[in-house]
Each structure stands twice: as structure tokens, then as C-alpha cells.
């Protein structure tokens, strides 16, 4: 495939080709199956790299015919049946586990009571262990979306979820740089991710951005900001933020903030 043609494909797909050239180019594609094939490959590459997902036609090839005939076989049905049966057993087992978890919760309450007594005798727990006790990823809003503009946001969320905080920061920052209508949750995620990689300045900067925004999650920013200070061992700063949360019962985790403040005093 000659360089010039591939270059035109790239210009066409990226929108850099002027409209009068587009007409001729599309005519060329329609008339030449090889060019069409190359265009499709470049399209597939773009889709792969941008995380888009599109349906493709199923080719009528030897391989797809082999897949088709296997899928129709008794053997395939047996495999499917075994997988489904085991899935069913696992669901039942996990419900049982759920019930036994309730017993575990009851046991934990007893342990907690003893631990609390120990706390009064042994002194304050470290800010680090309090952070571990109070930080919950579940408190973060879900931000995963699928679409052209949000792929770096989505990739960041996935990296974050997998515990790759440095990678998450890189994706989130590039999402921010791209501008446009930003999902405000990105500031929360960035705040937490920076705190995880021990960059407290950047962490606070991002929390402040969401706290001062009109976002519904603004008060979550306060909660995670307090936790970030806690993680950084800055308990006085953490206390100031926790007091602010406690002062308004409608703030996110206001009760927990009160509890945590009690432990820090």
C-alpha cells in the first residue's frame, strides 16, 4: 500500500481532508476493495486506541464456519450447561456465605467493643490506621462512561480501580487538559489518587476545586480532603476540615466525621 494513499486515509479519518478531496476519496474507496480494506484497518486501529467499541460484520470465513459448527454441537451445549450449573451452585453458596457474614458482623461488634476498651487504655490509634478504617472507595461516585470524550476519564477510572494510582493521575490529568465539559468527579478521583501517591499539595488542590464547585459531590470533597490530611499525618488540618463537616449535618458523612474527630481529640 503506497504511503500517499495511507496518508490520505489518515487525513480522511482525522477530518483533515478538505471537502472537495473527500468526494474524490470516497469514490476511490467505493471502487477499490484494497483501499477499502486499508481504510477499515485504520478505522479499527483508531477504534482500538480510543477505546471505542463498534460492531463488525461477521465474515464468512473458514474460521467463523468452524466456530459456528462447534457452537451448534452437543459438546458446546454440555460445556455451557456445566458452566451454568456451577454458576448456580456458586450463587447459592455465596448467599449462604452472606448469611454467615451476618454472624461475622455480630462477632465484629463484640470485637469492636473490646477493641474500643483497649483503645481507651492503650492511647490513640495512628492517623494512618484511622485513614484505613475510614477510607472507602465505595464513597466515590461512579464516573465510568463510554464515549468519545470520556475515554481517558474511563481509562483513569479503571486504572484507579486496579490500584494503579500514578497511571490514573496521568489519564485524569489528560482528561482535564482536553477541556470541555468536565465531569466534576474527576477532581475527587484526582484528589484521592494524588493522596495515594503522597502528593498532598496536588491532592488538596483538586479537593478544593470540587469543594468550591456547584457539584452535588462538593461535600464529598471535604470528607476526602480530611482523609488526605489524615493520610499525610497532618491531624490538625484534618481536624479543621472535620469540624467544618460536622458543623453542617447535611454534609457527606457528617456523623462519621464527628466520630473520627472524637478519635483524633
Amino acid at each position: 500500500m503506497d504511503d500517499n494513499l495511507q496518508y490520505n486515509i489518515e487525513r480522511y479519518l482525522s477530518g483533515a481532508m478538505p471537502p472537495d478531496e473527500v468526494v474524490d476519496f470516497e469514490k476511490l474507496v467505493a471502487e477499490n476493495p484494497e483501499v477499502k480494506k486499508e481504510l477499515n484497518l485504520f478505522k479499527e486501529i483508531n477504534q482500538h486506541l480510543s477505546g471505542e467499541r463498534d460492531d463488525y460484520d461477521i465474515p464468512n470465513s473458514v474460521y467463523t464456519n468452524e466456530l459456528r459448527s462447534f457452537l451448534r454441537s452437543e459438546e458446546a451445549k454440555d460445556i455451557q450447561k456445566t458452566i451454568a450449573e456451577i454458576g448456580e451452585e456458586q450463587t447459592v453458596a455465596s448467599k449462604r456465605k452472606g448469611r454467615s457474614n451476618m454472624l461475622m458482623v455480630a462477632a465484629s461488634v463484640v470485637i469492636f467493643l473490646f477493641a474500643s476498651l483497649g483503645y481507651w487504655f492503650l492511647g490513640n490509634p495512628s492517623t494512618d490506621s484511622l485513614y484505613v478504617d475510614y477510607y472507602s472507595q465505595e464513597d466515590l461516585p461512579s464516573i465510568v462512561k463510554r464515549g468519545d470524550d470520556s475515554s481517558s476519564l474511563e481509562k483513569g477510572a479503571l486504572a484507579f480501580q486496579d490500584g494503579n494510582h500514578e497511571e490514573a493521575v496521568a489519564y485524569f490529568e489528560s482528561y482535564k487538559e482536553a477541556g470541555g465539559d468536565l465531569d466534576p468527579s474527576v477532581f475527587l478521583y484526582l484528589g484521592v489518587a494524588y493522596s495515594k501517591i503522597e502528593n498532598i499539595e496536588k491532592s488538596i488542590e483538586n479537593f478544593d476545586a470540587i469543594i468550591t464547585s456547584n457539584s452535588l459531590d462538593a461535600s464529598k470533597g471535604l470528607w476526602f480532603k480530611a482523609l488526605a490530611y489524615l493520610k499525610a499525618g497532618q491531624s490538625e488540618n484534618a481536624k479543621t476540615i472535620l469540624e467544618e463537616i460536622v458543623s453542617n449535618p447535611s454534609h457527606f458523612n457528617s456523623n462519621k466525621a464527628k466520630e473520627l474527630l472524637g478519635k483524633l481529640d
Binding site: H48, Y56, I58, T64, L67, R68, L71
Partner: peptide, 17 residues
């Protein structure tokens, strides 16, 4: 059947890329 084939081909293309 087509859903399975489509997903298999997609995953194989994804692996290759």
C-alpha cells in the same frame, strides 16, 4: 450464536492489536 462469534472475533482482534 452470532453474539458469541462476534465477541470471539472482537476479543481476538483486541488481543492482536
Amino acid at each position: 450464536e452470532n453474539n458469541h462469534i462476534e465477541s470471539i472475533l472482537y476479543q481476538e482482534r483486541w488481543d492482536l492489536f
